[in-house]
């Protein structure tokens, strides 16, 4: 499947759905959006580097991603009890030129408002998704979130960012 055959609207609606499931803490439905060769990456200190040489805020493969969801669902992940209320806006969507056989690379920006225990926090970020057309529709194999403040002390990023 090439980009020409995929409507931009389909890609947009994937990003919006992903954002809505994360916003609403719908953990299993969010996890189901991934392929099992997943890489979920939130860099620390800088936007890009070799993740084998530098610590990240999140660098999850499929196993760790399942751990993350299990933890959040346990009812005892106190940093999400009570849970964060969130809404994010996605814009500046750009689709990278696609090469045959490769996942579709999509860039976008988001603003995320997060409220927990009376503290409302705004996050700004650029994100990079790689999407793959599977039998049941689009899934993501890669998501990298470049937080504007990734070199600043962060209070609680234990929700799905």
């Amino acid at each position: 499947m090439t980009i020409a055959a995929l409507d931009l609207r389909e890609i947009e609606s994937f990003l919006y759905r992903e954002a809505r499931l994360a916003d609403e803490n719908r953990y299993d439905e969010w996890l189901a959006l991934w392929t099992t060769d997943a890489t979920y990456w939130v860099p620390a200190n800088d936007d890009d580097y070799d993740p084998r040489q530098h610590v990240s805020i999140i660098y999850d493969g499929w196993d760790r991603l399942q751990d993350r969801i299990d933890r959040l669902k346990s009812g005892a992940a106190w940093s999400q009890e009570p849970r964060s209320r969130m809404r994010r806006l996605i814009s500046n969507i750009e689709i990278e030129p696609q090469r045959a056989g490769e996942d579709i690379a999509v860039r976008s920006n988001f603003v995320l408002g997060e409220l927990r225990r009376g503290l409302q926090t705004a996050y700004f970020a650029h994100q990079l998704h790689r999407l793959r057309l599977c039998d049941d529709g689009l899934r993501m194999s890669f998501k990298k979130v470049l937080l504007l403040n990734n070199d600043e002390p962060l209070h609680n990023l234990s929700f799905l960012v």
């Binding site: 990240s56 805020i57 106190w78 609680n156 990023l157 960012v161």
Partner: peptide, 15 residues
């Protein structure tokens, strides 16, 4: 990474 930092599995609960 797995345990520490603002998105780890240990540190946020301590916080």
């Amino acid at each position: 990474e797995d345990r520490m930092g603002p998105a780890g599995s240990i540190n946020p609960d301590d916080v």
